[in-house]
């Protein structure tokens, strides 16, 4: 493990686990990520042409589904859930399933790069969990669960590494893919930060707009009354022309 990455994980874990309410949110995020991984792996079961890998993907998916339940259970056990509760109860919050533009992670990456992704993600997760355990975080019961999960993650690392090694021998640029995946994560982190920053800025300026521009119109605007109303008139003429209109 890189020294820098370990330092980062150490600092981040101390902050993440010790702030009030953060452990629940972190565990809820893990639950969602594991559930998303389960969906990615099930999509791979469906899409792969390498039939010998199907069972491994399937078992991997079942592990991830179980991990999601374990993390969700720990969130509930720790109590004081708030937003974390909503995240684990509401599958609509699930944004980690890797579907972009209607294509699953497997479809977008192709099998060799997908397996490289699996290897990198699983190896990183193992490192992350080990740092938590080394530092005695977050609590005894969750640590016990993390140890169990680590064993299964080790299986995921080993089978995906074997496949990555095989692709490397075939001359495929797996090391470049691994580097690119890590760079992409950094880039996505930057994009997340930019998006959040942009949201704050746009909220500010839209708030200013709201106060300055919208306020005068308040005098004219009224909410609709209850009860039946006469429907607004529909445009006449060619129905196809009207159907093309967005308003």
């Amino acid at each position: 493990m890189g020294v820098l990455r370990r330092m980062w994980l150490t600092v981040a874990s101390e902050v993440s686990w010790r702030l009030p309410g953060r452990p629940q949110r972190l565990l809820a995020a893990f639950a969602l990520a594991e559930r998303g991984s389960m969906l990615d792996m099930l999509a791979a079961v469906e899409a792969t042409d390498r039939r010998e890998l199907r069972k491994k993907y399937f078992l991997h998916a079942l592990d991830e589904g179980r991990h999601a339940l374990v993390f969700a259970e720990r969130v509930r056990a720790l109590g004081q859930l708030g937003r974390a509760e909503a995240a684990i109860e509401d599958s609509g919050k699930l944004v980690e399933a890797g579907i972009v533009g209607g294509r699953t992670l497997f479809e977008r990456l192709g099998e060799p790069e997908f397996l490289t992704f699996v290897y990198v993600a699983e190896a990183d997760a193992v490192e992350q969990f080990r740092v938590y355990l080394d530092r005695g975080l977050p609590d005894t019961r969750t640590q016990d669960e993390l140890r169990g999960i680590l064993k299964e993650e080790t299986f995921h690392v080993s089978y995906s590494r074997a496949e990555v090694d095989r692709y490397r021998k075939e001359g495929l640029p797996v090391d470049w893919w691994a580097t690119r995946l890590r760079l992409r994560r950094l880039w996505e982190g930057w994009l997340r930060f930019s998006r959040d920053f942009g949201a704050v800025m746009s909220a500010f300026w839209l708030g200013v707009l709201y106060l300055l521009v919208m306020a005068p119109f308040r005098l004219l605007a009224r909410l609709e009354p209850g009860g039946w109303q006469t429907p607004a008139g529909r445009p006449g003429g060619d129905p196809l022309v009207a159907a093309r209109m967005e308003g």
Binding site: A199, S202, A203, L206, G207, Y210, L211, M214, A215, F217, R218, A221, R222, L223, M245, E246, G247
Partner: peptide, 29 residues
Amino acid sequence: KPLRKFDRILSTSVATFPKSWAAFPRHMR
């Protein structure tokens, strides 16, 4: 019809001023 929906959201934000201060930026974004 997306523009009619936008019309409703905008009109309602104005009609509920200033209580809609938090909803307006979110909807507009």
